[in-house]
């Protein structure tokens, strides 16, 4: 029993490291479309999606939280933390809700997670900069979020498929 708990803790630590690496790799990539800022693949979401399905929202939230603070400490500041926190919380909440409804595929859950991640960040930007017009970015970000969400959803599905048999 105790051994199993330790094993899981170690595995979640490993997952946190993977999300950090994915976030770092994503930061190294050139912007996909420089004319419209904020478009990202959302690579770390592969791990969150996997954790959400393999374990539960608790494990995904824990890994996400550690990742947020680690990224803020390593590469960012308190402002970037506010943006990523809002995006992550909203995204995970929506993904968990849709998964629990159990009527949608993993790809759809991933797409909605991507869109709501964007929405959380845009909402913070509107509040911080007190400019409602920023909301128009959501039009473009919804389309790009859908495309990214499909790819991330498929990747997450494959990770889940190959790690499902492994006992953790």
């Amino acid at each position: 029993m105790r051994n199993k708990k330790t094993k899981k803790l170690a595995f979640l630590g490993l997952c946190t490291a993977v999300t950090l690496i994915l976030a770092y790799v994503e930061a190294l990539l050139p912007p996909l479309w420089a004319a419209v800022p904020g478009i990202k693949m959302g690579l770390p979401n592969i791990m969150l999606l996997f954790l959400l399905y393999r374990f539960s929202v608790k494990e995904a939230a824990a890994v996400s939280l550690v990742r947020l603070f680690a990224v803020a400490l390593l590469f960012g500041n308190i402002m970037t933390l506010a943006y990523s926190f809002a995006g992550a919380v909203l995204s995970l909440a929506v993904m968990n809700l849709l998964k629990r409804i159990d009527r949608f595929s993993m790809v759809a859950v991933s797409i909605m997670g991507g869109i709501f991640h964007n929405l959380g960040q845009v909402l913070v930007a509107i509040l911080v900069l007190e400019t409602a017009e920023i909301g128009y970015y959501m039009i473009v970000l919804t389309v790009t979020g859908t495309i990214a969400g499909i790819l991330i959803g498929l990747a997450g599905y494959l990770v889940l498929k190959y790690l499902k048999q492994k006992e953790i």
Partner: peptide, 17 residues
């Protein structure tokens, strides 16, 4: 059925956008 639900959900969101 899942695929149909997916298309309805994502289609709806894209329609709003």
């Amino acid at each position: 059925k899942r695929l149909r639900n997916d298309i309805l959900l994502i289609g709806g969101v894209l329609l709003i956008a």
